[in-house]
């Protein structure tokens, strides 16, 4: 369980998040909605350690959690970026095995074998030798998800997972997230898409813009 307590965050001289407290329960999908500019991406960046909090704290299972200051804490959070940010200089397999070999110090053979299992689970094992430029949006997203899952995070964050995809793929993304939920993976999803949100959400959190 991830708890956010009294989070404040300003960017420049604008207050983006103000005294925000919320709880992300385990093994469920928490959907974050809110108008454009409300601070949803900012919230994900704080959770994943990309941005520092101005004040407030994060607790993971009741323990203090600080992915911004403590790199080791980042292990717990996986991120699927809105534009995926696959590494263009590495193949699909290279994208997935890079962090496990470098950060978790897995032997390459072991990392590859685990990557293969993930690729099969996500139905993309035929893509393993391709470079990202050759993938469609939906394929890139699956690779980004496999890359995040390879680090065995406690929790996965998605920023607008349907925004870069054909609307026909929405159903498949929803099915994918629900299948991960069935495996007990905790997920946080930021989305604008009401229908998509209703299909997947166990909990909804509404982020509202701060006036001024």
């Amino acid at each position: 369980m991830l708890e956010l307590q009294h989070i404040n965050k300003r960017i420049g001289d604008r207050q983006i998040l103000k005294d925000l407290s919320l709880t992300i329960p385990d093994h469920a999908i928490t959907v974050i909605v809110g108008p454009s500019g409300a601070g949803k991406t900012t919230l994900l960046r704080c959770i994943s350690g990309l941005s520092a909090l101005d004040s407030g704290k994060l607790l993971l299972d009741g323990e203090p959690f600080d992915p911004h200051q403590r790199p080791a804490d980042r292990r717990a959070i996986g991120v699927v970026f809105q534009d995926f940010q696959l590494f263009p200089n590495l193949t699909v397999l290279g994208n997935i095995t890079l962090a496990p070999t470098l950060a978790l110090k897995l032997r390459p053979a072991e990392a590859e074998q685990k990557a293969q299992t993930l690729l099969e689970k996500l139905n993309i094992s035929n893509l393993r030798q391709l470079y990202p430029y050759a993938l469609s949006g939906g394929q890139k997203q699956r690779v980004a998800l496999a890359r995040a899952l390879a680090m065995k995070p406690r929790l996965i964050c998605y920023d607008e997972p349907t925004s870069a995809l054909d609307s026909g793929l929405r159903g498949r993304v929803a099915a994918l997230l629900l299948s991960l939920k069935a495996e007990g993976i905790t997920q946080i999803v930021v989305t604008h898409d009401q229908d998509f949100a209703k299909t997947i959400a166990d909990h909804m959190i509404n982020v509202v813009p701060i006036a001024g």
Binding site: S48, G49, L50, P71, A72, R74, R75, I77, G78, V79, F81, D83, Q85, L86, F87, L98, A99, L102, A103, L104, R147, A148, M151
Partner: peptide, 18 residues
């Protein structure tokens, strides 16, 4: 090189030199 590439490496726990 987009900033997102560096952030992507950061959330994957790669060190600065990696």
């Amino acid at each position: 090189v987009p900033q997102g590439q560096i952030e992507s490496a950061q959330v994957l726990q790669l060190s600065y030199s990696q």
